[in-house]
């Protein structure tokens, strides 16, 4: 009932391109996350869906109607804003009731609907307070409650967790996931935090500079990044990327030499691998270089080298000790390596 399609959507301000030829088909009941660094066009895309920005080119189709020229109020959506947009002069109860009031929902239904939303967001104790008397987490829940009080076809959430502290973010994240699976409403969620994206999404859209970089499930994106941008954006720490040359299945860069790679491609190649896949060895490692730093993370230690221009890190057990400047070796088997074309940044299929 609420499939959301974006066809060749563009947003330009004068000569500046905000969103470039965006195509996406969001299924009913899907939880879709738009992920990217700030200024990549993800918020603009969401605001175009909401009707808060005009679409320069292309079509946005909600259900079976083109909504390009509809006012936000006529699109049957609800939205949670980054700074929540709570009405400071209204109580929690009245804030949540506001959409019902302005949409002329029959008065006798209000109380039941508002109370249901208040229960779902666990705001019973605060319902007669004003936003100024609430903590950040409570305000965030009021914004959520206001979004779910009626049954919209699409939920839009614009970085709803970015104003919360780290601990609260984890619990609210779980609450959002739980609410969405209960309500089964199509959801578009914007964030710059890749952990939020990985934990919440059915599908993730990674964006950069107004363009879609990759669309896929969290696992796809983690395991098979489509280009160096996605590789360096997803994962904590992000994927190590070393520039070098590939010749006859052997990759050579400063302080690193990996053999047994496919013989097909050659030339300037960027080699990528994840810190947790590699390990420190005493001899015969593919990396052999002076150590740049060692950091104790608690559950593990992080060893870093400086290879060419790039910092390369791998995780090892927490008991490992070495001095800065000592030559340390690490094994990088061909099986954990990803290859990217250095010039274009695109992934080379193995």
């Amino acid at each position: 009932m609420a499939r959301l399609q974006l066809k060749n959507v563009n947003k330009r301000w004068g000569s500046f391109v905000g969103v470039d030829n965006f195509n996406l088909d969001i299924a009913d009941e899907e939880f879709l996350v738009l992920l990217g660094p700030s200024g990549c066009g993800k918020s603009t895309t969401m605001r175009m869906i909401a009707g808060l920005e005009d679409v320069t080119d292309g079509e946005i189709i909600l259900g079976d109607r083109v909504v390009n020229d509809l006012e936000p109020k006529d699109r049957d959506i609800s939205m949670v804003f980054q700074s929540y947009g709570l009405y400071p002069n209204l109580t929690v109860y009245e804030n949540i009731r506001f959409p019902l009031r302005v949409r002329k929902v029959p008065k006798e239904k209000h109380d039941e609907m508002v109370m249901k939303a208040i229960h779902m967001t666990e705001l019973e104790d605060f319902m007669h307070r004003r936003p100024a008397e609430l903590s950040g987490g409570q305000r965030q829940r009021v914004a959520l409650g206001r979004a779910i009080v009626r049954k919209p076809t699409v939920f839009l959430m614009d970085e709803p967790l970015s104003n919360l502290d780290a601990k609260l973010r984890v619990s609210t994240r779980a609450q959002i996931k739980n609410l969405q699976s209960k309500l089964k409403t199509t959801t578009v969620y914007v964030t710059h935090d890749q952990i939020e994206a990985m934990t919440l999404a059915d599908r993730v859209v990674v964006m950069n500079a107004g363009k879609i970089q990759q669309v896929g499930t969290p696992t796809d994106i983690y395991d098979m990044p489509a280009n160096t941008f996605v590789a360096s954006f997803i994962g904590s720490p992000a994927m190590n990327l070393v520039e070098g040359a590939l010749e006859g299945g052997t990759f050579t860069g400063e302080g690193i030499r990996v053999e047994g790679l496919p013989t097909g491609p050659s030339g300037n190649i960027t080699l990528g691998f994840r810190a947790e896949d590699a390990e420190i060895v005493d001899t015969g490692g593919q990396i052999s270089a002076p150590m740049y730093s060692i950091e104790l993370l608690g559950e593990a230690s992080m060893i870093t080298w400086r290879l060419g221009g790039a910092l390369v890190s791998i995780k090892t057990n927490k008991e490992y000790r070495a001095e800065i400047g000592d030559v340390v070796q690490a094994s990088i088997p061909a099986s954990i390596c990803h290859l990217f074309d250095t010039a274009s940044g695109e992934r080379i299929a193995l």
Binding site: A50, G51, L52, E71, P72, K73, I77, S78, M79, F81, Q82, S83, Y84, G85, L86, Y87, F98, P99, V102, R103, A143, R146, L156
Partner: peptide, 20 residues
């Protein structure tokens, strides 16, 4: 955010100005 959330909640631009 304030008037935009009002507009998403179902107000016209002028209603958002008046109510919010």
């Amino acid at each position: 955010d304030l008037d935009e959330s009002a507009m998403v909640d179902g107000c016209t631009r002028f209603q958002a100005f008046r109510h919010v």
